[in-house]
């Protein structure tokens, strides 16, 4: 009897511990958000978005940073989306089970775990030096594209796998070719999940700092890039730059920049979650 009640108490105790450990992560997230708001919200103003960085913290803004981020994101998406979704389609819909595809699969799993700073070194050696692209937007976009490629491939495969086999069967049985089946049946059915994965991958790219620093993206830019071959900076690099200044005044700028960056990331994540939810609801097989 005694043992039984002890067991019950332990069970209850663990339940509380479980809630506490989940809550811990979420509370930290909350504290973090409150902290940056307290530190940075005073600096948030229209001019913060329309000013170049400056030696004086009160005058500095994120104009070149957010414009750079937009450029880099566009290039990254343009390169990584077709290649990543294409590779995912090949591996899920075309490839047979053989040594080569097994090798490609292991390889992608590994690439997904390679530290982002290594992609920076790849970009530096390959795009900046070997292809002579210098520290340009193109070099940055290519580097980040390679970085998120495995993420997009993996999520695309997962999305395709969720499409019921019977749809493919129906399409093939009516004499459709493989591509027709993929293009007109499988992709539309998996579209929502594929996009969810793409948005999450892009939200990761938005926050990446290390690879772009490694390829030599500048930390101080007082002009706007005009084309693919221009130097650039991005929002997280600008934040990093402000955090590493000794003057306290720049910390508020960093916090304000973080509010913008975090807002962007959270919106993208929320969009992805909502999209997933929406499609899960809409399609019932």
């Amino acid at each position: 009897m005694n043992r039984k009640s002890r067991n019950k108490r332990l069970d209850k105790g663990f339940s509380i511990l479980g809630i506490a450990s989940i809550a811990f992560g979420l509370i930290v997230l909350l504290v973090l958000i409150i902290d940056v708001f307290l530190d940075g919200s005073a600096r948030l103003s229209w001019s913060f978005f329309t000013s170049f960085p400056s030696r004086k913290p009160e005058l500095a803004g994120i104009l070149s940073a957010w414009v750079g981020t937009v450029w880099i994101m566009a290039i990254t998406a343009l390169i990584a989306l077709p290649l990543g979704i294409g590779a995912g389609i090949y591996l899920e819909e075309y490839a047979g089970k053989n040594r080569l595809t097994d090798f490609i699969e292991i390889n992608i799993a590994n690439l997904a775990g390679v530290p982002s700073v290594i992609y920076g070194l790849l970009g530096l050696g390959l795009f900046v030096r070997y292809f002579n692209l210098d520290r340009s937007i193109l070099a940055g976009g290519l580097t980040l594209a390679l970085l998120i490629l495995p993420v997009i491939i993996l999520s695309t495969r997962e999305a395709l796998r969720a499409v019921p086999f019977s749809i493919r069967e129906a399409s093939y049985a009516s004499g459709a070719t493989r591509w027709q089946t993929v293009r007109y049946q499988v992709i539309p059915a998996a579209f929502g999940s594929i996009m969810t994965g793409v948005i999450l991958a892009m939200s990761r790219a938005v926050g990446e700092t290390a690879p772009l620093i490694t390829i030599g993206a500048l930390t101080y830019i007082a002009f706007l890039p005009q084309g693919l071959s221009d130097p650039f900076t991005v929002l997280p690099i600008q934040i990093f730059n402000w955090v590493s200044r000794p003057q306290k005044g720049f910390f508020a700028n960093a916090a304000a920049g973080i509010i913008v960056l975090l807002g962007l990331t959270l919106i993208m994540n929320a969009a992805a979650i909502l999209l997933r939810h929406h499609y899960q609801k809409k399609i019932r097989w």
């Binding site: 940056v36 934040i239 990093f240 955090v243 973080i258 975090l262 994540n269």
Partner: peptide
């Protein structure tokens, strides 16, 4: 509900965590 919320924790850019570690 909890899993997507936790995913947000993983989605926070690391530069933000750096700020949090150094200044908070």
């Amino acid at each position: 509900i909890v899993k997507p919320l936790l995913e947000i924790l993983a989605a926070v850019p690391t530069v933000v965590y750096g700020y949090f570690a150094l200044l908070f």
